[in-house]
Write a protein that binds this DNA or RNA. Structure first.
Lengths: 109, 109
DNA sequence: TGTAAGTGAAACCATACGGTTTCCAAAAAA
DNA sequence: TTTTTTGGAAACCGTATGGTTTCACTTACA
């Protein structure tokens, strides 16, 4: 599993990883805790978690013999911002108005 | 390029496809118009566009000898909604509370 | 009519991806 | 001390991915 492109968009493209994100968004878990939610092997889950850590969505810290996995989903803001920049495509009815107001309405956090 | 998983998340995971999305969000273009923006070959771009059409983000219609590619980014709402469901992770206000609650929820086993 | 433009499709390629099994090491519990 | 829990690491595998080149077919135009 050599990775070259390792960004948030690629990280969330896998459904298993999105599920892991969801699990960890609720509660910090160790590796086995996470793996228990899946039918796949523990090493497979470990690899997914590693990918998530490589783009910063998950942080890991060792506590005794356990590897605690904690979500840090601030990186998803990038995804939200990107998708929202095309919001006019699903906000119907306001199309013309949206276009007109677009310059002034971009929420610059 | 046989595709099995073909959903929006996977479609937007490739930077080239996000760039194509951006191009088409501004203006409908034919295949060569799109390919002119990239250094890769036209067939490569055509494959990316096909992936985008397979998840509904781009629609294609033939006009004479041209293949017009038009963005239909309503499917990105799914991405926006998903990312926004974790919005608390980058909303500063609740940060401290979140961390506090999380610390108490670490499984001890 | 001949030729250029625009594209689809096929064959091919290297490597990334998602998964497995196996083995080993350290920490905790018996 | 022995055994169990937890997980890292390596080797391996089939397939998906992202790209290429080549060829053929329409459509438009001179």
């Amino acid at each position: 599993m050599n990775q070259i492109r390792r960004d948030v968009f690629q990280a969330i493209s896998d459904p298993t990883r999105r599920e892991i994100i969801d699990l960890l968004s609720v509660k910090t878990l160790n590796l086995n805790n996470v793996a228990d939610h899946f039918t796949m092997s523990r090493p497979a889950v470990a690899k997914h978690i590693r990918i998530l850590t490589e783009c910063g969505l998950v942080t890991v810290r060792t506590q005794g013999r356990e590897t605690l996995c904690q979500a840090d989903l601030r990186g998803l803001k990038q995804v939200s911002d990107w998708a929202n920049s095309y919001q006019k495509f699903w906000t119907e009815k306001l199309d013309a108005l949206e276009k007109f107001l677009d310059e002034d309405m971009i929420p610059e956090d």
